[in-house]
Design a protein around this nucleic acid. Structure first.
Lengths: 139, 139
DNA sequence: TCCTTTGTATCAAGGACTTGATGCAAAGGT
DNA sequence: ACCTTTGCATCAAGTCCTTGATACAAAGGA
């Protein structure tokens, strides 16, 4: 039982640690890798594991709570928000909206944009970001 | 001729001036608002118009050249790259690819994603959240 | 209620990024 | 060839962001 590591942070990357933490958790929550109600490591725990300050982890949790993905209670820890799973649809809509907006600004028609997305799906992915290394601690 | 207001910069915005300039030009080039071969204002000219330092405008031009959108020659000015117009397709593909990758990571099927994009187009522009940041540049 | 757990607020230090100014180098025009 | 035009390189200063440490507040358990 290795009290597995929770999230990985690469300090050499230009994107700041608190963003790395935030995005990794956001991905997991959105994809269902972390079910609603699942308890996350405490701020101190995760900070210690990653060798960071409490405030750094706290900031990540905070922004995720503001985004509705997490729920925190002092003394009670931090958990994945109840409807967080249901947020997937919202996340999809949001991305689609942004994509559509960009396409419109480029003067691209809906048909053209749809064709491009369709093709992108068929091509499969070339640049694969390293996915998260989270292990859920259940209790 | 042409005292055309090509570019505007709003210092109050959080995004730095050189990025504002870069993105505006990138948009114009992508959409064909600036045809291939079109000569842009000189670094000094644009800097003076905007009340900025030469280096600020130069940086924007530089990054655009690195991205293949512009071509510069010392003493010869800066022009829209010959195949820049043809880049629109590349830009579209790039965005579509990024969108598709995100969708896949969310476990969204192609059909579902296409439906979302289609709907986003029908809805038109409403409010713009800034949760996700999609940047245009490659490389 | 008391004590522990856990998230929050604050603030100073450090670093990264952006800007501005100036001099240099290369291309163009005559 | 000469001189002008125009982009590039460099470097210091200012600003903004991020981090780390510490003290505080709220919730939970016995």
């Amino acid at each position: 039982m290795s009290g597995d590591p929770i999230i990985t942070v690469d300090p050499s990357q230009p994107v700041p640690p608190y963003v790395q933490i935030r995005d990794q958790i956001a991905d997991l929550v959105s994809t269902g890798g972390l079910a609603a109600g699942t308890r996350l490591p405490t701020v101190r725990q995760l900070a210690a594991d990653l060798g960071l300050a409490n405030g750094t982890v706290a900031r990540a949790y905070q922004e995720l709570e503001a985004a509705g993905q997490l729920e925190t209670r002092r003394g009670g820890g931090t958990r994945v928000a109840p409807q967080a799973g249901g947020r997937r649809a919202a996340v999809v809509r949001e991305h689609a909206h942004e994509f559509a907006t960009t396409m419109r600004r480029l003067g691209v028609t809906a048909a053209e944009a749809l064709a491009a997305v369709d093709q992108a799906f068929e091509l499969g992915d070339s640049d694969r970001k390293d996915l998260t290394v989270i292990s859920v601690q259940s209790e």
